[in-house]
Design a protein around this nucleic acid. Sequence first.
RNA 1: GCGCGCUUAGCUCAGCGGUAGAGCAUCAGUAUCACACACUGGGGGUCGCAGGUUCAAAUCCUGCAGCGCGCACCA
Length: 926
Amino acid sequence: MNDIPKAYDPGAVEEKWYKTWEERGYFVADPSSPKPAYSIVIPPPNVTGVLHMGHVLNNTIQDILARKARMQGYEVLWLPGTDHAGIATQAVVEKNLRKQGLMKHREDLGRDKFLEHVWAWKEKHGHIIVQQLKRLGCSCDWSRLRFTMDSDYSRCVQKVFVALFRDGLIYRGLRMVHWDPAAQTALSDEEVEWIEEKGHLWYIRYPLLDPEGRTLPDQCIIVATTRPETMLGDEAVAVHPQDHRYRHLLGRRVLLPLRNKPIPIVGDAAVEPEFGTGCVKVTPAHDPADYEIALRHQLPFTVVIGPDGRMTPEAGHGFAGLDRMEARKAVVAHLEKLGLLEKTEDYIHRVGYSQRSHVPIEPRLSEQWFLRYPEVERAQRVVENGQIRFHPEKWVKTYTHWLSNLKDWCISRQLWWGHRIPVWTRTFEDLAELEAARATFPLSDLDTAIRCQDRTMVVATANPVLQQQLTRDGWHQDPDVLDTWFSSWLWPFATMGWTGQAERDHQNPTLRRFYPTTDLVTGPDIIFFWVARMIMAGLRFMDEVPFRNVYFTGIIRDKHGRKMSKSLGNSPDPLDLIRRYGADALRFGTMRSAPLGQDVLFDEKDVELGRNFCNKLWNACRFRQLQQGQAAIALDPDRLTVDDRWILLKLNTAIQEIHAAFTEYRFNEVTQTLYRFFWTEYCDWYLEAAKAVLQARDVYQKASTLGVIDFVLDHTLRLFHPFLPHITEELWHGMGFTKRYPEDRGGCSLMFAPWPEPFAADFLQRYQLHEGVLRFAEARYALATEGRNLRRLANLPANRKVKFILRPAQPLNDYDRQVLTLLLQAETLELDPEAAPRRGTPTCRTLLGDLYLPLEGVVDVAAETVRLSQELTKIEVEIERLQQRLSDSEFQAKAPPHVLQEHERRLHEWRQKAAHLRSALELLQT
RNA sequence: GCGCGCUUAGCUCAGCGGUAGAGCAUCAGUAUCACACACUGGGGGUCGCAGGUUCAAAUCCUGCAGCGCGCACCA
């Protein structure tokens, strides 16, 4: 017991307890438990990723919620898992294989071989993030670890696809999509980041042709463009049909420079006459707006930029093969040489970048699969009417705005790593043959949906037998995979074993108990990608919201407010922080600096503070352990000192504040309250005062105080446990608190000890815990501070024992005197109602009386005179202000009585202080 | 352009109608027997600007400015 080390060393303690909890199955959720249910599903991290600060913030919050719920007596399911992260993972593996020289392009290996490599990569790296979450202390039910590419999960994805396909919400079509030339795949609208950039507006002359197709000297139409390289694919020039500058040219043609191709001038209302020259070059295959114009005017689609971002042969000699950015320079150079570049203006515009590969996206015309979102209105309603609550609430607006401006979701990706689209097609010789084939499909198979167009039959199926058969029979399976989010949006129920068969799902104990989940904790950056879509999927397939509350964290930034990124090198490795400071320290520091709804400016200092705090907690318990003597088991009202009552009241206040903060998900406030209570109120004041009893000989009194200490520490450890799970568990056992609780409620582990509740009224009454106690205790603490200041002013070192004299303004008993002596670090404190100071005696006035440091001549008279005069001036200003206030008849008439009283009390206090200062000054002068 | 948020001590933020607060940083002192990852004391703010409401405004209202973030097909 007395060999507890002076400094807390988290390393061994943390690993030991995590292992114990896991081995004893404490994290496992039992659906058959009689307790009420509490559940969270983890936002699945990338399976091959590593832990970053965002994960730390996010998962610490989830762990706090889960651990608190367990203590509150809930059966807790925190369901963990990982995400296959299509583009990111495939890109990493491709890069790796290329580095190893195993391939140049994935086609070199072929689909099956390539996927073997990805799976091998997943097997190799997949456990890393899980291990890291464990190291952080996350109390997930690991027996239920899920992966979005698990076979069960894949079946869910396929079933959902088939169901939506059957309902006509999923369709395939030729569309202009956002194309990522680096990953070479289509993206959804949400995956494009619009970044404002400095660019140019190039004004290009397109020579006008006469009706016979001959060039007309000096007659040109000038178009303005930010992307001159696309002109190689122009098929028209458009003007507003009502624009009288150009109306007469409608129907005429211009000669497309560099390609020497005649193209028409068309009238289209989409053209804004005010912008540029009022003439738009129309590139149907490379611009969404131009695509629409082209459809309206039946223009051809000439593709001049290939899927890899290089110019195609269609771009013509001299350009074909160039990268689009090189082509831009080349086109401008050529135009300049030909004298067709009218002018170049600087221009700030927004360029779409792929969120994944950070290259400019390229609008591209291609066949893709789309989803018309289901349950949109209901999804909007459940958030607006509070069935799902957002914290902070401000995100509701963002959410509903997005939902009311939805476009269909492009769900196909030209990748190999992911859920392959479960669609097989076959084109038959004639309709009769098609009908014959169609008749062979059982209509009762809910996992299969069929659509026919002409002689082509499209079969979407999640039925594995049928899938194999179709492949065997030579049907063609769609080569694309689904957007990763198309699997993530099913996460809350697919992870719980959803099958889509109502009866089976109804029997599923996990779904029954734990769906809908209670809380979701995630970043606002994926409100559209994930949160909104989960709500839609939940409503569609479970007919119930997926969660009751969504807590949106802030984004973790560095201490300068910059986003954390690998290239900036400002992203600390959480595992390194854990090694150096401990997981508890990291958790506490992160939570303490993370206010609700605001970005978190992370500083390693926060973690240091967390470590220091753990050390403080450790030593406070160590101090208790080092005390000899027996502690009272129950608190004895007759033996409680004023300090005991004070700390009990402060504890109650802290519990109340913590409850209030938790109901609003204000985790940083909880940590701040805990910090203040434990460090300032308990350690700095209460423990120091309690030493008066602990150092005395009265064993009964000492037992009582030790009882209070144990009572407070017991509560403190429980309150801290969700934030600092490891150290609190260690101390819970070390202090022997397990003996105070039943086996399943704290006797074996702090994890299941009861969550502290504010004290009941009869408790407060029995121990006489009321306002008056606070006043008196705090007056004594204020006196201590004043006295320490006196000592400081007299330049007396803190360790020099000195005598203080107090002329008491109210009776003080011997216990109070002893406490004050201790708090003042005094040799003695003499209570003398007649005390009259000699000249040059440092003195101050407190609520409890005038305090003297009877050491003449130790004060620097000049300096002290200045200081006191300045203070007097300040006080006189305060008095003046208060007097003015109080003499105002309107204030007298309208201010509530307690405010009036408070002002009068304050005025009295200030006047007392002023009077004392004046006499102190006088004492110095003479 | 529309919407949202922020602006309080050197830094990060609390406070949201009745004497301006915390942590860190800073300055001074301390090896006191829980803790130097500590203790003690101090200094530091006309609460972005301008109006208004009120007996009383950092706090409520209006306008302005600066910063940040969403959303929007003006090439």
